[in-house]
Design a protein around this nucleic acid. Structure first.
Lengths: 241, 241
DNA sequence: CCTTCTATTGAGCGAACGATCAATAAGGGC
DNA sequence: GCCCTTATTGATCGTTCGCTCAATAGAAGG
């Protein structure tokens, strides 16, 4: 109430004062598209902060609207969260990543480096990381499906390229082993952990996380091909019991 | 109700049939110590599964007791969660870790390896990992304080030992730089990520995570000392603006 | 066997949850 | 300037939350 009346002090704003769409215009009678977009963006920020158990009333309060209005745009809270998944994860997946890791003009390690630098910059984001782990905690399959995409669309082609560069059997002849994926997931995890420490664990660590990750790649990549060769050649006992 | 009456079928158990304390005896009239212990252990398992927003009624139902009984042993839900922190994190901290990383009879890399093998085995636990990230999401300072302990009590002495082994300046003369800690946090994060993928993200990945982590250490440790030397010598510009 | 102590329960409080619906008011077309 | 459409609100439903308290029941001591 009080909040709304305070906003109402700018009464002569009825004809949209200055900014037309940029200043979110928390006032009334937005177009359905603008309102829906405002709700989605606010929901991303809100649920990232407080977790997916956040309350619709508090979300509405932060948006400067009433709670029933949320249910005009999303029939249930679950449907709003589903929309958040699309917004934060599916829409932010860059098909260029899949092209990069298949770019035969580059050495495999350089493809991996470029993918990770760009990928980590994308996901080292308050909402991305926090909603990701929050969804995992609630048992939703989004995190496992998403990491399955990384594994299948990014790491598998990378490993295939590394096999080729090292004159090792093609994945068609000898399937990619779990140990090979773990090699990439290890480096990947070290990079993700930099963001987790800051965004989830609340450590006020290094300011320039990009530089930290670049240094980690510099330390980890040089030995990767040799280790990969060792893993592939020492373990054709892939087909377990 | 139904559940309780089913349990009640073992009526002649009034004189405590066989197991005295081991079989949890979800029935009635436990000693306060036994009941409190049962509640804490059940709360750890329950809140690990559903997150710290779990409900006291559901916890009580799983324990086979009524909800008001919880509040006889813990005045508020928050106090119960505080007790969980003590139980899972403070009580599971092994002082031997601090001794291991200071054991001058071992090379630094071997100290680091032994610490990580043992530490990761301890924390790769459903409750440990999930409550840790759940606490981080809720903004509690437990994760940052805990990682601060790892940094100060484990990584700092390790880095001091690495400085000594490489004939580099003592931390007293040249303070440990953030980049040096990041070196260790990088490997550490890669190992933690193995558990997170399984326990939080729900990936049904590798069965033998211990072996995966051992392989990661084998890949990462050999180059660590050289990288550390490079970091220390190339960056005496520690005191930034 | 009866009394005493207290672990445990059943009933219930106020508040807040997700969700619903009729009433209201803002803006565009005429 | 009026009307009509509909974005938005106020009031409210049934449920469930953390939490309280008087009543109940199970074990121990005499």
């Amino acid at each position: 109430m009080i909040v709304r009346s305070i906003e109402g002090e700018s009464v002569m704003a009825s004809r949209r004062p200055a900014g037309r769409e940029d200043s979110v215009q928390t006032g009334r009678r937005l177009t359905p598209e603008a309102r829906e977009r405002q709700i989605v963006e606010g929901a991303v920020a809100y649920f990232a902060e407080v977790g997916l158990d956040g309350h619709t009333r508090e979300l509405a309060r932060r948006l400067g609207i009433t709670q029933p209005l949320l249910f005009r745009y999303f029939p249930t809270k679950a449907s709003l969260i589903e929309r958040i998944y699309e917004e934060v994860y599916l829409r932010r997946w860059d098909p260029g990543w899949e092209a990069t890791v298949r770019d035969t003009a580059l050495p495999c390690l350089e493809r991996f480096r470029r993918f990770e630098i760009d990928y980590q910059r994308r996901i080292d984001d308050y909402a991305w990381l926090r909603i990701f782990v929050s969804a995992g905690l609630k048992g939703f399959d989004l995190p496992s499906r998403y990491l399955g995409m990384v594994r299948a669309r990014i790491f598998a082609p990378l490993l295939a390229g590394m096999r080729a560069e090292s004159n090792l059997p093609d994945p068609e002849a000898q399937p990619l082993a779990a140990d090979e994926f773990e090699l990439l997931f290890g480096i990947h995890g070290a990079l993700v952990y930099v963001g987790l420490r800051s965004r989830v664990y609340g450590m006020d660590g290094t300011a320039d996380r990009d530089a930290v990750r670049a240094a980690m790649l510099d330390a980890a990549l040089p030995g990767l091909l040799a280790t990969h060769r060792r893993v592939v050649m020492a373990a054709p006992a892939a087909a377990g019991p």
